[in-house]
Simulated assay, not measured.
Amino acid sequence: MIFRDRALPKAVDLLERALEGQDEALLNDAFHNLRDAMGESQPQTCAAAGPRLAALLPRTPMGAAAILAVMIGACVEHGADPAACAGPVFDRIEDALTNVAGFPALWDETVGGELPQRDHLALGEALGRIAEVTGGIDEATFAAVSAWMELPLWEMAAVTLLSYEPIRQAVQEEGSLVVLADAAAMGDADLKCLRYLLKMFDAEPLVVVHRPTGTAYRMRMSRIGDNFQLHTLLAHLLVGGGHVPGEAPPAAVVAAMRDAPLADPPPQATGSFNLAAADGSWIWNEGCPADIPVVDGERLLILDPPPYGRAWQATRFYPQIAGDLVLEKVLDRAEADAYLAKAAPARDRPSV
């Protein structure tokens, strides 16, 4: 075990030499050794390697940097200080999200047709198809193509680091990554793990109006990954708390949506409400709490009766993050009526 644990520091040493000498063959050897060594090393050895690898990331060429970022994330999962690793990783992620913006137009103007599936192993193939048309690959083209093909790796590394609350709060406060990720997404489902985590709230106030009973509640939500989780915890507090009629979620479902380890198989949750914005538009369970609009300085959520039966597995979108929803106050009738007056009539199911 001692000899195997020496393999990772030696692989990092080799990577340093490869980057200093700009030796491509040595760089390939270093990555091969890193991959093998990380799978065999003790957690404390991986933890020690994390900051060293992060310090090398700024000098690592495109095409290899995203793989190194994932390795740094693995080191953080094994105990490396996320604060010591985050800066270089997020600098390169911002570069990738900036560079990827030009890829769809580049592909359309050269190869044309459907965009290629993102896969870092197919980077060479994508570059080759463009080069057949253009006669060569310049630096900007390489940056755009590598960013597109490697974006899942960058997302994986980012999610690992953003799972740590101080890191997430610092990135959210700086703000640029939130904007870049939204701009880079090709539809609601694209980069979902990254975008939802960038928008995750910590101790965010929420006013909830239950339209059928005319009651309203002041709550606070923390670290809730998606609206399936929010919906389930709302049902626990309101139905389980005896505030509104319905069937409360079982204790195992509530625990799974808060902080319990993943169960196999996971328990089943059922829908108690239809979530809506104050303007009557639906807020989908597949979305995240940031989808709830702010009305007069507060996030306002309307609960209507469920239009049809819904069920889902009680699993957190981010299993590594414990979430919570707290009921702070049951509002009096006058307050509830004031919030209810801000709500447009319920809408029928939108066409999708």
Score class of each variant (00 low, 15 high):
residue 125 E to P: 00
residue 73 G to W: 04
residue 350 P to G: 09
residue 115 L to P: 04
residue 190 D to W: 01
residue 121 L to I: 00
residue 286 E to F: 05
residue 135 G to E: 07
residue 200 M to H: 00
residue 187 G to I: 11
residue 182 D to L: 10
residue 105 A to N: 03
residue 241 G to E: 13
residue 308 Y to W: 06
residue 252 A to C: 05
residue 151 L to Q: 10
residue 297 G to F: 08
residue 279 D to I: 02
residue 296 D to K: 10
residue 335 E to Q: 15
residue 329 K to D: 15
residue 24 E to W: 09
residue 104 P to C: 09
residue 220 R to W: 00
residue 61 P to D: 13
residue 310 R to V: 08
residue 164 Y to N: 07
residue 132 E to C: 05
residue 78 H to R: 14
residue 176 S to P: 01
residue 301 L to T: 10
residue 148 W to F: 08
residue 204 E to F: 01
residue 315 T to G: 02
residue 141 T to E: 10
residue 338 A to D: 12
residue 352 V to S: 07
residue 336 A to Y: 11
residue 293 P to I: 05
residue 187 G to T: 12
residue 58 P to H: 14
residue 113 G to L: 07
residue 312 W to P: 00
residue 226 D to R: 00
residue 346 A to N: 05
residue 233 L to C: 05
residue 7 A to V: 01
residue 145 V to D: 07
residue 159 V to K: 00
residue 164 Y to W: 14
residue 282 W to Y: 14
residue 194 L to A: 08
residue 83 A to H: 12
residue 231 H to Y: 09
residue 29 D to M: 03
residue 310 R to C: 02
residue 136 G to C: 11
residue 74 A to R: 13
residue 225 G to W: 01
residue 25 A to M: 06
residue 291 D to L: 03
residue 110 T to N: 06
residue 11 A to D: 08
residue 236 H to I: 00
residue 271 G to M: 07
residue 6 R to Q: 15
residue 91 D to W: 02
residue 294 V to C: 11
residue 41 S to P: 04
residue 189 A to Y: 04
residue 121 L to Q: 07
residue 284 W to S: 05
residue 303 L to R: 08
residue 174 E to I: 01
residue 219 M to L: 15
residue 77 E to V: 00
residue 288 C to S: 13
residue 265 P to Q: 02
residue 121 L to E: 11
residue 37 A to D: 12
residue 321 I to K: 00
residue 271 G to Y: 03
residue 324 D to F: 01
residue 66 A to P: 02
residue 248 A to Y: 07
residue 125 E to A: 11
residue 314 A to K: 05
residue 113 G to M: 06
residue 238 L to P: 08
residue 292 I to M: 05
residue 283 I to S: 04
residue 8 L to M: 09
residue 95 D to R: 06
residue 53 L to K: 08
residue 55 A to H: 05
residue 55 A to P: 03
residue 286 E to C: 07
residue 211 R to I: 14
residue 351 S to A: 13
residue 347 R to L: 15
residue 86 A to I: 06
residue 37 A to V: 13
residue 117 Q to K: 11
residue 5 D to Y: 02
residue 313 Q to K: 08
residue 110 T to G: 06
residue 246 G to R: 04
